[in-house]
Amino acid sequence: MPEKSITLEVFRYLPEQSDEPKYQKYDVPYREDWVVLDALNYIKDHIDGSLSYRWSCRMGVCGSCGMMVNGEPRLTCAAFLRDFYPQPIRVEPLTNFPVIRDLIINLEDFLHKLKEVKAWLIPKQEKPVSEGEYLQSPKELATYKQFSMCINCMLCYAACPVYGLEPKFLGPAAIALGQRYNLDSRDGGKEERTDIIASSEGIWECTFIGECSRVCPKHVDPAAAIQRAKVQSTQEWWMSLLLPKGAK
């Protein structure tokens, strides 16, 4: 029985060979339970060892293997061949990012932004470890938990036209992670983060297209984080306007 196969059209960019990318076609065996990442691994092991891409956990949690699959940002470890077969699949590096090589993008910009938003706990009240844990009710946990699920896979940045047009925009994941701490009952760093989150490069740059949330593989819903931050920020602005100084 001849083996079924499927064609992958893969974006190749080899900076030492050419300034321009090209698309290379590979025929790989078609298997019902294979994901696009399995097909890439097959190419790497058996057809073309020079194809470069990132991957690690192959279970949708490390965030390494995000790529454009037929124009949609996807985790390739969760994009099954069977959803495309028998049509060819086009695999490209995530859009809106510079390409280092082949399917590998440069995501340094995000790491700077993560630091800029101070995505770490700034305790409301310092408490020595010897006094035990901060108390946090399940309800308080639930208010930020969703935004803590971000795996930094960058699919939301690839989907966000605002980020594509204005690279200074903090972007969905960085804002969602800033909000994750703002909403944490243990945290008191909201004011420190406001300067950057509520700046023109922050939430107000967002036009609520919602693509970030649509493509998010972990249902973080960064669009919600941003819109809610806008509402909150607006409320606070009015309050500061209406209430005398010092009142809260």
Partner: peptide, 15 residues
């Protein structure tokens, strides 16, 4: 926990 790890909690807020 002090560094923000979102541990699952008891109803009374303890880990």
């Amino acid at each position: 926990e002090h560094w923000g790890c979102p541990w699952s909690r008891e109803p009374d807020g303890h880990v």
